[in-house]
Write a protein that binds this DNA or RNA. Structure first.
Lengths: 342, 342
DNA sequence: TTGTACGCGTTATCAT
DNA sequence: ATGATAACGCGTACAA
């Protein structure tokens, strides 16, 4: 595809050709007021003609930053996360920033490695959603210590008071559970992720509180833990619970995939949804309106969370004295998206 | 989260403290054979103790590259693309490369802008899937001319002979259509993307050839063009076609989303799938096994394509004389993934 | 308004 | 086995 020609034009080339100094070129190119109109115009014209492009590598070194935002997530190919990234990328692009992406594959070790790699790449800020098993956050402390601010999104650390964007997970868990209770359900199963993760812990707490406030006993056999909350794991969880002497009459799954896996199983054994088992999921992924019956879910504004996380990052970056900033926690409200499954 | 302390340790700091020269430190750090065991060990120990991290910005400038791969896609939050990216990222990580991501939002203008931005960022290679309306590829010629090799994946240019990874779209279109014909269908609708895009053009050609070889006339009213092949557009397309005096008895949709939109509509008006209208999609997205009945589709190895594209990029990068390389076209075969919808 | 000179941190070349 | 020096390209303090 075309000829290759690595000799890139520099400000020195332009300077020589115009018989001015490189600094004049440098200044003219960024519309420095102290450079004459004539000169500026001439420089720009030649730059365009010669196809001059600034060497970002040199500029980065000189300015000690990369104009890049790092994004570290468990997996990019999940509906919620890919939309989150889409929101981040769109905002970043508009603000003139690049986006460097890495996935942890939900592994703590990979998270540590990649955090270091991103910091080494001198990203100006790091937007992070934690790996499932992460309970030690010291690698992020290291990042901040080295001058890379961190904004957490969705899967945020326990007891964290720094910059973060999330939903109100406790309330979401409470509301989802209450929604099922309001529809007459008494034996409500919970599909949860690791309780070491704050988001799942909070949803669990909301679930327990809702049951308690309605005088419904907590039954441990109805609480299923799952590593990844995949479709397959959802199937496995419900299969186990349907064998109980008194099986659940409803399921609150803390993501949609596991709910859908369970629904598929329930349908396959001839039980009716929602009559025999009602379902409510979380995230409101597109698949909710594809399954039959459509899956009730809790809203989860992925793109918006991405935009907000990026905005926070930008604010930190542009603050001259990052030390004195007050950290911001954005906690978004969710609501039930009612559909036929409950 | 911890104290901030921007003063980063450099090889000069280490050199001074150890009473050696910076070059010795630099060499020791990368296990240069000419440095004594003792010295090397001492340097590494101190580096670790002082928390030394190389300044990638400086290294990049010196080496004239960024160790980064640029990825330019229409949207990151689509099942096929997010999985493609996942494959690229995983391989890149393993090879020690960063991944810079940008989306074109299927706009030609944005594609041009972002290509330039990525080239300016000195990515070492660009992996691109074209925007829907792109028919002029000169911005990629510019990229190559400036020394940034380009690998296309999935949505590749027309009549291109450079590096690219794709599926055999003609054969895929042919096989999908033949599959419906084999099941006795005569009036087979096609849901296509823009025919200016090679992938849709090839699928269209395959569709036409299959009909022709089976003596079935081409009916223009059964060929639907769609801008984004979204669920909504699928619904709209089938709604129009069902009004025909002789409506289609099958649909070949060139992606799964549009097929599913159409299936939802068909079910909503009380027609049966596959008895009244059979369906086959493309990509084999997860949603195929969520819809009822499950959607037959054509396989589309997204993660594998990502890995292959990255490998091609790496080969080009590591080739010393890129000029003389022969370009590689990888064309993967697909197969029908049969399910209940046809 | 423009030019000179230096530094950002690393690495490669050449010398010792 | 180690050191001195230059260079990558840009941006800016200081000088003119």
């Amino acid at each position: 595809m075309g000829q290759k020609n690595n000799k890139r034009v520099t400000i020195y080339d332009l300077a020589k050709e115009l018989n001015v100094s490189p600094s004049t070129v440098s200044r003219a190119l960024k519309d420095h007021t102290s450079i004459g109109q004539e000169t500026t115009k001439a420089v720009k014209a030649l730059a365009k003609q010669r196809g001059y492009r600034p060497n970002v590598l040199a500029s980065n070194l000189r300015n000690q930053h990369s104009n890049t935002i790092g994004v570290l997530v468990p997996w990019v190919n999940r509906p919620f996360i890919s939309t989150l990234i889409s929101g981040i990328e769109e905002s970043a692009q508009r603000a003139g920033y690049n986006v460097l992406i890495a996935q942890t594959q939900d592994s703590y070790e990979t998270e540590v490695t990649n955090t270091k790699a991103l910091v080494d790449s001198r990203v100006q800020a790091l937007i992070v959603s934690l790996a499932m098993e992460t309970t030690d956050y010291s690698h992020f402390n290291d990042a901040v210590r080295q001058g890379t601010p961190v904004v957490f999104v969705d899967r945020v650390p326990m007891n964290y008071r720094g910059n973060q964007v999330m939903i109100d997970n406790y309330q979401t868990g409470y509301d989802a559970t209450q929604y099922l209770i309001d529809r007459g359900r008494k034996r409500i199963a919970l599909f949860s992720g690791s309780l070491k993760q704050k988001i799942y812990r909070d949803r669990y707490d909301g679930y327990v509180a809702a049951l308690r406030n309605n005088g419904i006993p907590i039954d441990e056999s109805l609480i299923g833990n799952s590593h990844r909350l995949s479709i397959e794991e959802g199937t496995a969880l419900i299969a186990g619970m349907l064998k109980l002497s008194v099986p659940p009459d409803a399921v609150f799954s803390t993501n949609d995939s596991a709910a859908i896996g369970a629904m598929k199983y329930v349908k396959s054994v001839g039980k009716r949804i929602p009559e025999d088992v009602a379902f409510i999921g979380m995230n409101d992924d597109p698949m909710c309106t594809i399954i039959t019956p459509n899956l009730t879910s809790m809203s989860h504004p992925a793109a918006e969370m991405g935009r907000l996380a990026l905005r926070q990052a930008l604010e930190i970056i542009t603050q001259p004295d990052a030390e004195t900033n007050t950290a911001i926690t954005v906690r978004l409200n969710t609501k039930v998206v009612p559909r036929a499954s409950s």
